[in-house]
Design a protein around this nucleic acid. Structure first.
Lengths: 208, 208
DNA sequence: GCCCTAGGGATAGCGCTACTATCCAGTTCG
DNA sequence: CGAACTGGATAGTAGCGCTATCCCTAGGGC
């Protein structure tokens, strides 16, 4: 398969394919001559994976690279791969020098997670996301603490439990890892979209 | 309050405040002299709102402007404001010329929503988000249809129902509208973050 | 063989977004 | 009085995700 066929198959422009190769997201094809190369189904799949992470998940190129490297690292366990994916997915890194207020919010979040009985790593970026959200709610409406998160936590727990119990169609290590990572990304977007639709539905019933 | 105080209060750099004023996100202060202006608590609150939408919600400047305009438009009903916010929140506009495959996925999604009994507008951007997600799942794992969305839809329905039933601390029209919009944005991030933490928790129990 | 289109890699450039830096006249405060 | 500061206007910057150009080689119908 030539690059142009790969491009047509995946609906990704040729210069973009070249760009992904340059950026290390996609391996270059096996060369058949000094300036010709052959691409296979692996490349099609990888390219589709990249586009899903970009278009549905909204990840940046660097984050995608991180995720793909974790997927390719055969020595990593499922749990480790998922952890790296979570890190890459985080909208923002924990601030190098958080404000005192943010630090206090973070402590409340940490205690909240502790109370839930969840065993998660201390440096999970989602903790900072929650802290920022809590701080915003406190500042704008005087919300008192992370108790408002509780119903969401219960929902999240049940969703995650059923997700982790599900198994990919293809049972190989790479297949399973891809499934977990893409599942995280895609179903996050799905859940958000469905929540908006449900909000619109209930809003119509209530206000219109 | 001078601009520099406003800046200190909200931890937003002065040039950025100026930028927001230029972009129409923030009204300029009431001038007390040809080159002096006075800012009030409204400005503090509005600025915090902008930063929440940016930092927690990840919205772009243009999207924020749209949302703020909807909030300020007194003649809009709650339902209309929420609709505009949903449009502004959409990661991507519906493609002008969707591929046949995407169009087919969209039809399946539409039927799925119909079956749920949700009454939502035909041009809700979330429909396209779901269609893209479905297409990705089909192409990568041969997932057959939107039935996999069903558990998520049930969860989303319950979450949205309780959200719409909740009332903001401040009952004025503007207060309620702000609450709804920020709630949509902030709790989306909260739910996503909690889901990741729950995933990590269950992943640890299962794999480690 | 021969020409002419197409392929592949390297390099540079573009368009967009969200700021950020500079300048300047006018104001305030020690 | 003068140094520091203020607010508005204008221009510049950094990063991201491509996209266009160049240049040379391959392959294929004649």
């Amino acid at each position: 398969m030539r690059m142009s066929e790969l491009s047509r198959e995946t609906e990704v422009p040729v210069p973009t394919v070249k760009y992904y190769i340059r950026e290390g997201l996609l391996s270059s094809g096996s060369p058949t001559a000094p300036n010709q190369a052959e691409y296979g189904q692996d490349h099609v799949r990888r390219l589709r994976l990249i586009r899903v992470l970009r278009d549905v998940g909204g990840l940046g190129i660097a984050q995608i690279r991180t995720v793909l490297e974790a997927i390719d690292a055969e020595e990593l366990s499922m749990h480790e791969v998922l952890g790296r994916a979570h890190h890459a997915l985080a909208p923002s890194e924990p601030p190098s020098e958080p404000s005192p207020e943010l630090a206090r919010a973070k402590e409340k979040v940490d205690r909240f997670i502790e109370d839930l009985g969840w065993r998660v790593s201390a440096d999970a970026p989602a903790r900072w996301t929650l802290a920022e959200a809590l701080l915003a709610l406190e500042r704008l409406w005087g919300v008192e603490g992370p108790q408002t998160f509780l119903p969401y936590a219960r929902v999240a727990d049940r969703v995650a439990a059923s997700e982790l119990a599900s198994r990919p169609p293809n049972g190989s290590r790479t297949g399973t890892v891809e499934w977990m990572v893409v599942g995280t990304v895609v179903y996050e977007a799905v859940l958000a979209a469905l929540r908006r639709l449900a909000q619109e539905h209930h809003s119509a019933r209530r206000f219109a």
